[in-house]
């Protein structure tokens, strides 16, 4: 295994020393490129009071390549499919090496606050969302209750 680039070390240090509110990210002991992430659902969103587990992996080419992020907790969201994959531009085409783990996770948190059913990844969810937004939001709240309760 190649040595860890200085940038990743710096980012990890800064995540620890200056954490983002509502977000935690800890590198795995065995693989320092693998992070265990939790994101709190943003307030005034269907995901409020939920705590979502994610995994984040920094590929060898990082930061030239975007980190790979996936939801581990089930979530009812038009841009996140049942496997936890996330449809987010900065993770795909709009990635820029000036972005960081921190900014990516903030973007994901923002995505929770503003679902975009017009550019869906989970088509069924997006359809529900467009047809009947209030019931879809209720369902999202239910799922948050069911699956995203903070571990005590």
């Amino acid at each position: 295994m190649s040595s860890l680039p200085k940038r990743i070390i710096k980012e990890t240090e800064r995540l620890v020393s200056d954490p983002v509110p509502g977000i935690t990210a800890e590198p795995h002991d065995d693989n320092l490129r693998y992070f265990e992430v939790t994101i709190e659902g943003p307030q005034q969103s269907p995901y409020e009071n939920g705590v979502f587990d994610l995994e984040l992996f920094l590929p060898d080419d990082y930061p030239m390549e975007a980190p790979k992020v996936r939801f581990l907790t089930k979530i009812y969201h038009p841009n996140i499919d049942r496997l936890g994959r996330i449809c987010l531009d900065v993770l795909k085409t709009n990635w820029s090496p000036a972005l960081q783990i921190r900014t990516v996770l903030l973007s994901i948190q923002a995505l929770l606050a503003s679902p975009n059913p017009n550019d869906p990844l989970a088509n069924d969810v997006a359809e529900d969302w467009i047809k009947d937004e209030s019931s879809a939001i209720d369902k999202a709240k239910q799922w948050t209750q069911l699956y995203a309760q903070p571990k005590k």
Binding site: K6, R7, E11
Partner: peptide, 10 residues
């Protein structure tokens, strides 16, 4: 003023 290179953060 940006002191650091945004790619390597140094």
């Amino acid at each position: 003023e940006e002191e650091d290179c945004s790619i390597c953060l140094s």
